[in-house]
Design a protein around this nucleic acid. Sequence first.
DNA 1: TATTGTTATACTCTATAACTATA
DNA 2: TATAGTTATAGAGTATAACAATA
Lengths: 142, 142
Amino acid sequence: MIKLGMLDEHIGFHLRLAQDVSFRAYARQAGAPHLKPGRFAAMTVIKNNPGISQIALGRAISRDKSTITPMVRELVSLGLVERVPSTIDRRSMTLTLTSAGDAMLDDLARAAEAHDRRLDEVVGDQKAVLIELLKKIEDALV
Amino acid sequence: MIKLGMLDEHIGFHLRLAQDVSFRAYARQAGAPHLKPGRFAAMTVIKNNPGISQIALGRAISRDKSTITPMVRELVSLGLVERVPSTIDRRSMTLTLTSAGDAMLDDLARAAEAHDRRLDEVVGDQKAVLIELLKKIEDALV
DNA sequence: TATTGTTATACTCTATAACTATA
DNA sequence: TATAGTTATAGAGTATAACAATA
């Protein structure tokens, strides 16, 4: 049996471990509707903020603009996102989901929800507490 | 203001976000005693399980053996880990920390602890609850 | 001068598969 | 046959820096 030593008391360590395990379980389960993990977050942000610029998208998901460029290009080439030059700022692009993108996001949401139902089961009636604590961490450390 | 939509209710999503934020904060703060994140976990496992094989190390931190090889080589070349052929199984290597490795791990532990004290502050008296929930997730989803 | 987005480039982390040497 | 470890290789994900166009 492997011992973990002092790490066992560390929130940061368990955050990493739990995220790792959770993501692997999701990837195993999702299987079919394949789209890389970052894409899901990006598409969700676009859906909820139609017309958003690439820069703003990058800020929303904490990625550099140079990371956003190929990501958006891929989503556009898959027919999931539409990319139109802004009329008010000609440097800027406006992003929206296509109807295919919307449908795909629904599929992904279903897979994510199935996964999250498992997580819900695991944490039981403590879900609200857990999410509240995680949000606190997100807000405090930015 | 960016809206997140349904994701906001998902444990998996907040796990990812909180881990991301936490890791970035740690990286910012750690600054000086530079060693990549996976190394910390590896060295901790070696410290607490002296003589462990590479395969067992890989299992402990959920990495393939081909990921372990260059990782161990780096730690050896930095003088932090000693790597000795096993006398009982000649295919196998035994790993232990050098005294420099032990000292380095102490430094890293201090940085990690400083970071974790911030996390502790954020979650307050809910720390035990949070760790318990994260462990539940780790155990349930393997 | 500052910002949006692209490109070139590079680095890290990771795994798969084929291999060797042992078991 | 199976396991420990290495190597070659490839694919994600990410960022920095230099740049063009526009503000």
